[in-house]
Design a binder for these strands. Structure first.
Lengths: 216, 216
DNA sequence: AGGGCATTCGATCGACCGATCGACGGACGG
DNA sequence: CCGTCCGTCGATCGGTCGATCGAATGCCCT
């Protein structure tokens, strides 16, 4: 029942985790089905009682990866009016998922190309929907004068890409806690968006430090 | 002599370009040597008069990709004192190369994992050297009070990643010119770094617009 | 105790993988 | 006019790929 790699995981869960590790490490094409079976501790014949084809397995991981971003992303957009608050929550979501589920995120981001056309189209559609959440938020924020970016689409791509990179270097044993990392990325994102340092919170927080740039 | 895919390219050049296209599109492991031969317009047997092994071919592309960033990057660092000017030039270099040589950049960024350990170590060392140029620039800029970032290393990763993303969507026929894209990324990078809007150039340019501007 | 079913296994399939080889050919220098 | 040699080719190597199948096993429910 536990979703996070319990010691006594079922075989199906071990298979999925094994595939995830290997796909993230060596890529889909670079991973043989025998390696997956080995990593899961079963034989090749047994493996095929859990996966349909190798691509079915990838497709399921892919869906899981994108759903884990798109669904909470939509909730955020529906629940938040203010573009500034929205982008803060979107960045936090994106960074946290790319850190906590870094393997799934790597596969989701990098292996779209390994899907056959029909499935790739669906995956691309999901990704586009997710990116649209960001783009509309940034566009709205620019329209309202909260954000100041040279180009909405470029800012969207830049922001998404910079947050996705977390998946490639995050380690739970690293120098910074995930909270600290998320906070830093929110700060950098707002800065990139040209958000006026003063003022999201209407209730004035007196302890706010100068954030960036001490304007003399 | 032309370096950019002349119509009458030599066979060796056609082979390299073919491999580059395919590695960038399908990945190293996802590309068969027969596909490379086909794409280059020769037979499999002939192919092996130009490449050593498939990995030799990748390694050469890899070196080319990293050298194309590291060498000019070092020149910039040596020629520029001011961290602000330095980072502007580094961003321009990185974005321009990831756009103009997007296939080579994609392969260089994504296929390090496909190299065997000895070669991978060398490639990683080159990449680390390049990233150090950025990190030291950002660190120095922070020390001098020009930049204001939550964390130097996080800012380095964020900046590099956001600029690398250009390789995946740039098209010479796109909505924006490469000059415009580079300019926008410089602007976003400086904003992310919390650079004070006023004043890089000591010689006061009167026509400087309000940086982020509200477009009428 | 026994029936039924999910799970596992080893053997095996044809296709494709990266890589090698000897033969052919034609352009060019002597 | 002939020998040399670089580039090209088709054939072929052993190995690995993804995928399938029937038989054996273990477990649960009745």
């Amino acid at each position: 029942m536990a979703t996070h790699d319990p010691a006594g995981a079922s075989t199906a869960e071990r298979v999925e985790q094994a595939a995830l590790r290997l796909f993230a490490l060596r890529g889909f094409e670079g991973t043989g089905i025998r390696s997956i079976a080995d990593e899961a501790g079963i034989t090749l014949g047994s493996l095929y009682h859990y996966i349909g084809t190798k691509e079915d397995l990838l497709d399921r991981l892919m869906q899981k990866s994108m759903r884990g971003l798109l669904d909470p992303g939509r909730e955020i957009v529906e629940a938040t009016d203010n573009p500034r608050e929205r982008i803060v929550k979107l960045v936090e979501l994106h960074v946290r998922r790319h850190a906590e589920d870094n393997l799934l995120s790597i596969v989701g981001d990098a292996e779209i190309r390994s899907l056959t056309p029909a499935r790739r189209r669906k995956a691309v559609a999901l990704r586009d929907s997710y990116e649209t959440l960001w783009e509309e938020t940034i566009s709205e924020g620019s329209r309202q004068g909260d954000f100041h970016v040279p180009d909405v689409k470029l800012a969207t791509f830049a922001l998404l890409e910079m947050c996705s990179g977390v998946a490639y270097w995050y380690s739970p044993n690293g120098r910074l806690s995930l909270d600290a990392i998320a906070k830093a990325f929110v700060e950098m994102a707002l800065s990139l968006l040209g958000v006026d340092p003063v003022g999201t919170a209407p209730d004035a927080r007196p302890e706010r430090r100068p954030r960036h740039r001490a304007r003399p």
